[in-house]
């Protein structure tokens, strides 16, 4: 199963959701934000090398971190050199070996979002409860639908006390899981770790478990 984590808007926490969801689903997390990669980097071949035909996608997967990760290069030259269309076959190759793949998509609505959505079996929309983020989420949902990636769940990220989950569920037509704003999530993310490894009994850790469960049921029943 390939699961695309998208949202349109930048800065809503797609990378955080990708890393934590990847940990819960025991998946390989692919950092596909080609020009603004956010997940931990590593020595050796990365996604830029894969898309430029210099490295094998499966060999670029790192298994030594807290979450299996296909890292992305950081240079603009690398982002420019790669063929984004090759991302589809790279994701398929990783899926064929590791079975479950979580793709951290970039912001925006260009092909670097479209190709993972095309390759994906399902998508998770990440949004915040701000109006402008919601508009982007709706647009991304339309694109996912057109590219045949069913909406498995919506992660309403960094919520306050009373998240508008019901409103959002009606607007987007999918199960909504709210993840509360929590410093421990950010701290764990900076270390490239899921929050469950730092604070397993915390509320956000429990919410990511719930999100993973929603994704599992959402993708099985479709």
């Amino acid at each position: 199963m390939i699961l695309a984590i998208a949202g349109g808007k930048g800065g809503v926490g797609k990378s955080t959701v990708s890393l934590n969801l990847g940990a819960e689903l025991d998946a390989v997390v692919v950092d596909a934000d080609l020009s603004m990669a956010d997940l931990p980097t590593a020595r050796g071949p990365d996604l830029h090398d894969v898309l430029a035909g210099r490295a094998d996608p499966v060999e670029a997967v790192r298994e030594d971190g807290p979450v299996d990760l296909l890292p992305c290069g950081r240079t603009l030259a690398g982002a420019r050199a790669g063929e984004v269309a090759a991302l589809a076959s790279a994701l398929d190759a990783v899926e064929s070996i590791y079975d479950r793949v979580v793709v951290d998509c970039p912001a925006g609505m260009a092909a670097d979002v479209g190709v993972p959505l095309l390759a994906a079996d399902a998508a998770v929309l990440v949004t915040s409860s701000r109006e402008f983020a919601l508009a982007d989420a709706v647009r991304t949902r339309a694109l996912a639908r057109e590219l045949d990636a069913g909406l498995a769940a919506v992660a309403l990220n960094r919520t306050g006390r009373e998240p508008p989950t019901e409103t959002l569920r009606r607007a987007l037509g999918a199960r909504v899981v709210a993840v509360p704003d929590d410093g421990r999530v950010r701290r764990a993310q900076r270390q490239g770790r899921p929050v469950a490894s730092l604070a397993p009994d915390s509320r956000p850790a429990a919410r990511f478990v719930a999100l993973a469960e929603t994704v599992r049921t959402g993708t099985l029943t479709r």
Binding site: L34, S35, A79, R80, G82, V84, A85, A86, L87, A88, S89, P106, G108, M109, A110, A111, D112, V113, G114, V115, L118, A119, L147
Partner: peptide, 12 residues
């Protein structure tokens, strides 16, 4: 994938 790139535009 090529069709997607053509339609949406590469973001390089």
């Amino acid at each position: 994938p090529d069709g997607v790139v053509r339609t949406l535009g590469a973001a390089r």
